[in-house]
């Protein structure tokens, strides 16, 4: 048995929820692209500790994991979909743009919308041809504008974090983002979200 196969076998044979987390951490630490399908499978185990370790492993592998994540987004298990979107958000590869745009605005699961909203603000635009960067950022801004009015506070929170990330990374978005966040402030009902709006606006002030 190869080293990778024995790491995978240890996951399948894990005797307990805690044992599973340890086994997933070991597989993630192998940093082996061959482990990607198994790490994605673990996102659907309904074990938050194991999923956190699997996401960390996928993020550490980086862009090589993106095609697998996009091809295996689980249409039925929204928990798994949320973890996958979290991994895509942290990797920041703009090949995930279409998926993140749709997820942030339209997924029925709030955990998916919140992860995607934040991810839209942290894409590595330099990976796109210059001609596509501006159009992509416009789409991201538009989707984040929608998410900023989401009925769930945590999605609005994710949208603020995403907008702040976009503006800090791409200075040409600083003024439109500051304007948008300032307009949201008077209609935001939740105290914590008001605080997050203030924090973002302060960080973008000249």
């Amino acid at each position: 048995m190869t080293a990778l196969n024995s790491l995978i076998a240890a996951i399948d044979a894990a005797p307990s929820a805690v044992g599973l987390i340890t086994a997933v951490r070991q597989l993630a630490a192998a940093r082996d692209p061959e482990a990607i399908p198994k790490l994605i499978e673990i996102l659907g185990y309904n074990n938050p500790g194991a999923a956190v370790a699997a996401v960390e492993g996928l993020v550490a592998l980086g862009p090589v994991a993106v095609p697998f994540l996009l091809a295996n987004l689980d249409g039925y298990d929204y928990g798994a979909r949320a973890w996958a979107n979290r991994a895509l958000a942290q990797i920041g590869d703009p090949r995930a743009l279409e998926n993140l745009l749709a997820a942030a605005q339209g997924d029925f699961a709030l955990s998916v919308r919140r992860a995607a909203a934040k991810g839209l603000g942290f894409l590595d635009w330099s990976a796109l041809p210059p001609a596509d960067q501006e159009a992509g950022q416009k789409q991201a801004f538009g989707a984040l504008q929608v998410a900023l009015g989401d009925e769930e506070w945590v999605v609005r929170y994710g949208a603020i974090a995403g907008l702040q990330g976009l503006a800090q990374q791409q200075p040409q978005w600083r003024d439109p983002v500051r304007q948008l966040l300032g307009d949201r402030l008077p209609c935001e009902p939740e105290l914590a979200i008001q605080a997050r709006l203030h924090w973002a606006i302060q960080s973008l002030n000249p």
Binding site: P48, V52, V154, A192
Partner: peptide, 30 residues
Amino acid sequence: TPAENSLKLIALKGLLENHLTRQAQDTLHL
């Protein structure tokens, strides 16, 4: 804590809001 992020976010939001409401009237000061 090894638990769902959704629940951890709710807990931190509660903590933050309880902290903010106990501050002086000016909650704009972070």
